[in-house]
Nucleic acid binder design. Structure first.
Lengths: 219, 219
DNA sequence: CTATCATTCCAATACTCTTTGGAATGATAG
DNA sequence: CTATCATTCCAAAGAGTATTGGAATGATAG
């Protein structure tokens, strides 16, 4: 029994998972896939890279068994193998956020108005949304809403928000969410809503964070 | 607001955590530190590397805020910053184990006898240990036992096991555990015990796995 | 067949990481 | 002061990674 050699082999295998999540590009792809399955084209577009580069990174993710593919028509769709991968993303982000001051600094420059952040707990939010005391809107693209969304949330993509403002009752507070803490869409939505007289706040969580906490989702 | 640049920065910060856990050596150090704090010398010895190399890797871990140091006398002791780091290690290993067939293959070559693995649930194990129906032994070095161990376990380091065999009652089953699934000490202990007529089984978990499941520990 | 979507191959550049060596520097105990 | 423990600096070899380019190949829909 060659102890050293075997141990090295074991750690090396685990390190493969680490290697895969050591690239900012791949992390961005993982975050996008947390929103639901997407084609290579969509992924490349959303993450600002060429299709070829996205393809290369997705190949790595697939080799590590973090994502899987399915062909439908002309497109090949990628999705996370299971929610454990989303949990890994949430955990890494949480660890990074707790430890790396640089990240916190970067995040606060994004969120110029800390007051727009939602002060309310998750379960309380759900209750208020169910009763209709507040309106929860999902400002991601419609297909991501279709794949998975928070209970009692309605889809109102950022791109359509301006011309569909009238759909929102002006007398109730609005809570907007998007892909998670790194996503800027909810942020912009809140800015727009506030400018038009709404009481709007941002929910930092996305569906991945929501699920990682064991909270329910709707599809 | 330069969206792209900011996003890149955010993902880059998270990728730093990934980078740190993309090295087999550093993972081994993390696993060792899951057992309790250790000096550089100890770590280097346990992980079969030179002090200088260990020092370099520990520097990386420290830069990522996964470990912290404390000087006591001539030695500098390293420890995990909090149990979230141990959880990350457990999570990565679990993901790797679920996904990478190579890892499973390597593990089964280690465990030539699958029957030696404990078939019993964690809570049930605790109960039996508390009642004294079984003897749970911690075969890690004594200082790791001192730092943290399973409830109702007694310390019986592998190095001393042979000459302290008489301390174990021959009429009750023995369950041995060590640093976790990647550690071979419990394995060897079970082999030795079985050879001497004991009914011995191996518990795959170590203290990190135990804690990650929310189960209690003793110190 | 043609257009589209995705991957692959070969190649090149630039970059980063790992590991080792030798030598030097700090910090501490006794 | 001396021995021990740990880190640091400079340097270098070697391996691996990321990204881009051009061109080609598969797979599918219509």
């Amino acid at each position: 029994m060659n102890t050293r050699a075997t141990k090295d082999l074991l750690y090396q295998q685990v390190a493969r998972i680490g290697k895969v999540v050591s690239s900012p590009r791949r992390l961005e792809l993982i975050e996008l896939l947390c929103q639901g399955e997407k084609s290579v084209e969509q992924l490349a577009g959303d993450a600002n890279m060429t299709v070829k580069l996205a393809s290369a990174h997705l190949k790595e993710l697939k080799a590590a068994r973090l994502v899987e593919t399915q062909r439908r028509g002309k497109h090949i769709y990628y999705r996370l193998v299971d929610s454990g991968v989303a949990d890994l993303w949430v955990m890494l982000r949480r660890l990074a956020g707790h430890r790396l001051l640089e990240l916190q600094a970067a995040l606060t420059t994004l969120t110029k108005r800390p007051d727009e952040l939602l002060p309310v707990g998750s379960r309380q939010l759900l209750q208020q949304a169910r009763r209709g005391d507040i309106i929860v809107i999902d400002v991601r693209p419609a297909d991501e809403y279709a794949a998975n969304h928070l209970p009692h949330a309605r889809s109102l993509p950022l791109a359509e928000l301006k011309r569909r403002l009238h759909e929102l009752p002006a007398d109730r507070p609005v809570v907007a969410y998007c892909r998670g803490p790194f996503c800027l869409m909810a942020h912009q939505a809140v800015a727009l809503l506030t400018k038009h007289g709404y009481r709007a706040q941002r929910l930092e969580d996305g569906v991945a964070e929501w699920r990682a906490r064991g909270l329910p989702l709707a599809a």
